[in-house]
């Protein structure tokens, strides 16, 4: 599956086992996107959250 980068329109390869909430990165510009919906071979992306100070284990 492929998706278009919302930032640079580069081509993002989506893994076959993709799930909602997963993060994908654009190989061209490096922007991160969250997969918000997966339906009939298409995914909807939105800009991923920036890493927070309290993120981690």
């Amino acid at each position: 599956m492929k998706a278009k980068c919302l930032e640079c329109e580069g081509e993002i390869t989506i893994p076959d086992d993709v799930v909602e909430g997963e993060i994908v990165s654009c190989p061209d510009c490096g922007a991160d996107f969250e997969v918000v919906e997966v339906s009939s071979g298409k995914v909807e992306l939105k800009a991923a959250e920036m890493v927070g100070e309290d993120w981690g284990e």
Partner: peptide, 13 residues
């Protein structure tokens, strides 16, 4: 969750 990472995918699988 607030971000699905490797571990969360592993739990689902």
């Amino acid at each position: 969750y607030d971000r699905i990472g490797w571990e969360e995918k592993r739990f689902e699988l």
